[in-house]
Design a protein around this nucleic acid. Sequence first.
DNA 1: CTGAAAGCGCTAACAG
DNA 2: CTGTTAGCGCTTTCAG
Lengths: 336, 336
Amino acid sequence: MKSPRKYPSSTDVARLAGVSQSAVSRAFNEGKSVSEETSRKVFEAAKQLGYSPNFIPRMLLKHRSDLVAIVISDSANPFYAAAVDAFSKALQETGHQVLLVSVDGGPALDGILPRLASYRVDAIVSALPVVTKAAAEAFARLRIPIVSFNTPAHNQWVASVCSDNAGGAALVADLFVKRGAKSFGFIGGTPSDYASEERLRGFRERLGTHGFDRIEIAMGDYLYEDAYKAAAAMAERREVPEALFCANDLMAFGVLDALRRAGLRVPQDVMVAGYDDVPAAAWGSFDLTTVVHGHEAMVAAAIAILHARMADGAEPTDGVTTTVPVSLIERATTRR
Amino acid sequence: MKSPRKYPSSTDVARLAGVSQSAVSRAFNEGKSVSEETSRKVFEAAKQLGYSPNFIPRMLLKHRSDLVAIVISDSANPFYAAAVDAFSKALQETGHQVLLVSVDGGPALDGILPRLASYRVDAIVSALPVVTKAAAEAFARLRIPIVSFNTPAHNQWVASVCSDNAGGAALVADLFVKRGAKSFGFIGGTPSDYASEERLRGFRERLGTHGFDRIEIAMGDYLYEDAYKAAAAMAERREVPEALFCANDLMAFGVLDALRRAGLRVPQDVMVAGYDDVPAAAWGSFDLTTVVHGHEAMVAAAIAILHARMADGAEPTDGVTTTVPVSLIERATTRR
DNA sequence: CTGAAAGCGCTAACAG
DNA sequence: CTGTTAGCGCTTTCAG
């Protein structure tokens, strides 16, 4: 690979403008004392050369890169896509740049840890299902603030921001009962996934207080297709409960399509609820009752933590998990 | 903001290992001559200090950042979300890092040009609807390779990769005619948007060759909601054509929901086709006939151009637009 | 194979 | 206000 053409440097500009190199630096930085005259000459020369200041030496000097890494694995999920978008906009507003890291299978941060460290990122947002203890400790030693998005890290070094999964699930349980359901089912995401388990836990506990203790459980891997199959199988066996709670909206869509295909009516025969409130949940075809976790609120909370920790030099946190409240929006799939 | 804790440097490692700083550098770079013994001592010390090499000085020295910017404005669209994902995975495989830049309203690259230049990105992928001449020339002068994704730049300095919009639209026209439609409608995206106009052009021209020259046109801004309203309005006026082509799938979903709400049957009363083949197009609720533009092929083409141009020092291109072929997948919304 | 030394482009402290 | 100077942490000659 041919080495790229060199950019003009502040020294080049200085030479052309007939001033010192530091004068150029000052002209390009707010709040430094430069005379009108010098400044004019500098910008004149800079324009002529097509100069733009190079931020890389600054990173070296200041020991800050202004880079924040966002690590994501499940970018097919619109919920995460929206979160990435919100994060990047918020970060850019405070002068940070976003390093987007897409990891494929492995749920762990461990593999990309050295890369992140070598780029000297100022902070990390992890949207991975798991933050291992080893990775967390490595970042803690490096003093890189890290916040785990939508998965609690159970780790003293990592701050987490989660939606109130169990609380949202409880709201669904209440609604199902209020609407008269007597038998219940749950379509989970990935086994052992935190959010999925919490949603099941909240659902089960609240149903328990209503005196119901049996839940038909199936797994759908957070995917439309798998959930479709799971629901189709239930219908095949004639074992569809009166109310089905899906751990995300995507799966709820699959369930709705499978039930309709099987000739069951929603909500008359079966009620369905999801989680996430993705845009499609409001569409006429689905009109899905679902749990809304203000993702703006989650992103805002995460950003606030990040800024605080970048400012304080990443002192150990108490591993606190910020739980963002959720609400339930009832639509046609439960309204009867 | 407190200045962050300094990372251990290669000098620190060298001191602890009792070797020179350059020995540490060599140990951490493949293919440099270092003895087994030295290497061992270096890694030992590095581990003890938690050292990871700092890439920032390297960027300074090599005049390459290994950063590739992806600039995106419409991140709500799953098509772009998937493209970003594919780009970032492909780029990471070749040792590049992705700088994600989300811009909001302004369709132009001009505003973020200085920032990209200052970060000395090695290349740019623009998924913006427009690349201005000024921006293109600035990047050309800086020798930053840039490829415009899904919008031709009509500019000598910018390589473009587009899907064969007109060709895909022509396929839709053929199918509609073959299935017996006699009246036609088009729901466009943003007015003056290239992709939308090309799709209309291809649709109109091919219909012309079949002897049809009237097309009912409405605009839907690429959104479900707006397309829903447009179709609902058509239904209200009892002016729904027998075949409706929507400039993207999202709008086709809106149209389908609106038509059904209005009591029209698809495909018996109205045929509908979209463009993109987003995952939801295959779902039971929609089962939408749509144009598939292999986004993998588009991303692969863009990546190939990027690599070639990064290698050749970004010589001026001939402003060539690579057109990626598309295909049509027929589903229930036209099958009668 | 290894160390010393130069220098990438910038910022900041220091004199003037 | 401005120039000089000293690095930031690396990679890369250049001698040994």
